[in-house]
Design a protein around this nucleic acid. Structure first.
Length: 286
DNA sequence: ACAGGATCCTGGGGGC
DNA sequence: TGCCCCCAGGATCCTG
């Protein structure tokens, strides 16, 4: 659920509240997450001070100054917030890291697809990412490598954008929005793109993600940032979740189709299988 | 290599 | 009100 813009927003929200804070305790619920947490974490972490929160793809990295790294994935419904220790603890809160200064870092996840892992240090973190084959960040992608990547597969564009090994951080919403922005049909084979279209798509992904970050991400159901605030980009979706509504560019009804196992939304006129993209409409600012 | 399905979960919404 | 079915920002494993 949370994709790159939502994760980036969480990280930006956490930074000023978490950096420099010392862990004073750990409480955990009974229900298991995607990866099990360990009792030993408490002794590993108590007395340790947090450094600057970071993001890699959809992963949140919370470094401890002395070396260990907390690695967190929000899955579909994960929330990571810093709250006052006195604030009520919501249902489905699975891990609470007590901090000095009367604050708490809380991990809440209704569907429990998320995960929290404690790694020994930067090396183990890098091994973890390497093992999963995590691809490059979408900002400042190498154009040649990107084009070569697309040219190397017959998979459809939707599947390629969702593949975290190709580009890290794009999920279902921003894949659809990026393809609309680029005027490309989600079912189009990646290796059928011209060099110009590949470049169009590369820029569209950057554009859409940047706009979404500027709006603090999208809140459809559960997502909140690190301070508990919702995002605003859902107001600007052009195709995602707009099945049957008029395309903002040409007025044709938006269609929905299952692709790469996911609900996929597109304009059948602006995003044809063959024809080159329509001209991009004016950007909306939130 | 790749598509498609099932799996891990909870909760919301629609239809009856 | 209840029940049943479908749907959901993800990742991973298995089958054909």
């Amino acid at each position: 659920m949370p994709e790159l813009p939502e994760v980036e927003t969480v990280v930006r929200d956490l930074r000023p509240h978490l950096g420099g804070r010392t862990v004073t305790g750990l409480r955990a619920g009974r229900q298991r997450l995607r990866r099990p947490w360990s009792r030993a974490w408490e002794s590993d972490l108590v007395g340790q001070r947090f450094g600057e929160a970071a993001r890699r793809g959809k992963w949140i990295v919370l470094p401890l100054v002395s070396g260990p790294r907390l690695l967190i994935h929000l899955g579909m419904t994960g929330q990571l917030t810093v709250a006052d220790a006195a604030a009520p603890v919501l249902d489905h809160t699975h891990l609470v890291f007590a901090l000095d200064g009367g604050r708490e870092l809380r991990f809440r996840d209704i569907r429990r697809f998320g995960s929290v892992t404690l790694l020994s240090g930067q090396e183990e973190l890098e091994r973890f990412f390497a093992k999963s084959g995590l691809g490059p960040e979408p900002f400042g992608l190498d154009r040649r490598a990107w084009r070569a990547e697309l040219a190397s597969t017959r998979r459809c564009l939707k599947a390629v954008l969702l593949d975290q090994r190709v580009v890290a951080g794009v999920g279902n919403i921003y894949a659809d929005e990026s393809l609309f922005e680029a005027g490309l049909h989600p079912g189009r084979a990646a290796n059928a793109l011209t060099a110009a279209q590949a470049e169009h798509l590369r820029r569209a992904v950057e554009t859409v993600l940047t706009r979404a970050i500027d709006c603090r991400g999208s809140s459809i159901r559960n997502y909140v940032g690190g301070s508990g605030l919702r995002g605003g980009y859902q107001e600007q979706f052009r195709v995602y979740g707009r099945t049957g509504e008029p395309c903002p560019r040409c007025g044709t009804a938006i269609e929905r189709q299952r692709l790469a196992g996911r609900s996929t939304h597109y304009c059948p006129r602006c995003q044809r299988q063959r024809r080159s993209p329509a001209r991009l409409g004016p950007s909306v600012v939130c």
